[in-house]
Design a protein around this nucleic acid. Structure first.
Lengths: 227, 227
DNA sequence: ACCTGAACACCGTTCAAGT
DNA sequence: ACCTGAACACCGTTCAAGT
């Protein structure tokens, strides 16, 4: 009878996709620092060296994880509505992938992805901005500003967190003693606000800031941003 | 004759500061991936285990590197001028530290720093925004948007580069074959622009966007950002 | 075609011990 | 007070070899 080829061990032979999906599961569960060739191989019931048959090295494996996660982004949310609504839709779609993969998402943010899966959201964003009436160059600059803002925001929220921000409650409110505080009156004044970070609200605040700025840009039509 | 105490090896005993400075030099020269306890010890002419007398573990060492680099930021550039000029001054001061330490700066961007050295630029930024007339909450939100944008921008420029952007010349212009391109007409149209990224200009473009948005916010005085 | 064993050159960290 | 040797439990990767 016709049957899928099996290995001596009695399981279907591995594919690149199966390897990468196992890696996504591993990182989603235990974080990026837990991803090692040896641990991943153990999860798959093979030896570490066998992975090199399916993947050239660890870097390529990580790129595969990042691409698999990013591929889940729901681009369709940028399809309808005013250009402002479409921009918000894209921004939220990006953050929702992050929420679905909080442990893996830092890999999306720190890898330079060149494949089609990375081009898809770029295509969507450029469509929105061009439809809004921005010229090619402005659309690209605006896109890069959005990407930078989103990258920084989601890094703060999900991973390798950026400096100068998201000071945890223990960070400012509790940990600093009074003497040190007196050196930073503004920080002391804002301490209760700095101590908590409502990530979704901060994200949406920033997105609205950028949208307001683009509305201004559009108003001034041909005139460039003042230096 | 009075003399500084020396070790059997004939050098002055190490301090935490000397260890961290050596680490900064190491990372500035060979990048963060080259920083290992064993390599750093070798640079210092001691054994790896001796480092643990001065520093509790590698994470603390890296935090020390990040803080040392960030401490170089020239806050004084936010002291004079209109609030817009002061915001630009701070943004440039931050990027200039990055330019001075291109290999080390990703560590500043990916570590959560809680010490006074991290509070100094926050204090400066809050001063500018409060002087500009923003209330406490708005100042904190605006600061977080700026930090997110700067983090993402400088990650793209100097390190672990974010997805969806900075597609290198080889990334879009050259590497994609024609067939794949036709799936992404906007990307094809903008390919020459996507292929190059003038980091300083992109950074300043984004800073101006955020400033324009804040000017709008100030104009609408008491009215909140529309959702 | 797919997988493995042995080996190489690394890691961070602990701990008891040296001076 | 400051440093070390030996050891433990890991890494990624190569390469010749197995089925």
């Amino acid at each position: 009878m016709a049957q899928i080829a099996t290995t001596k061990a009695g399981r279907a032979p591995l594919t690149r996709e199966a390897v990468i999906h196992a890696a996504v599961r591993l990182v989603d569960q235990d974080g990026p620092e837990a991803l090692s060739m040896r641990r991943l191989a153990a999860d798959l019931g093979i030896e570490a060296m066998s992975l090199y048959y399916h993947v050239p090295n660890k870097a390529a494996l990580i790129d595969g994880v990042a691409e698999t996660v990013l591929a889940e982004m729901d681009i369709s949310r940028a399809a309808r509505g005013t250009w402002e609504e479409r921009v918000r839709g894209l921004a939220r779609a990006f953050r929702e992938v992050a929420l679905a993969h909080p442990r893996s998402f830092p890999l999306v943010l720190t890898r330079q992805l060149g494949s089609a899966v990375a081009l898809r959201p770029i295509e969507a964003a450029l469509s929105v901005l061009r439809d809004a009436g921005f010229d090619r160059a402005t659309a690209v600059h605006a896109l890069r500003s959005f990407v930078a803002f989103q990258t920084g925001s989601l890094m703060r929220e999900f991973g390798a967190s950026p400096a100068l921000s998201g000071l945890s409650p223990s960070g400012v409110a509790a940990r600093k003693d009074e003497l040190e505080r007196s050196q930073f009156p503004m920080v002391v004044e804002a301490a209760p606000l700095l101590a908590v970070c409502h990530h979704e609200r901060e994200y949406e605040f920033g997105v609205e800031l950028l949208i307001v700025a683009l509305q201004q840009l559009r108003g001034r039509k041909k005139r460039p941003l003042k230096r």
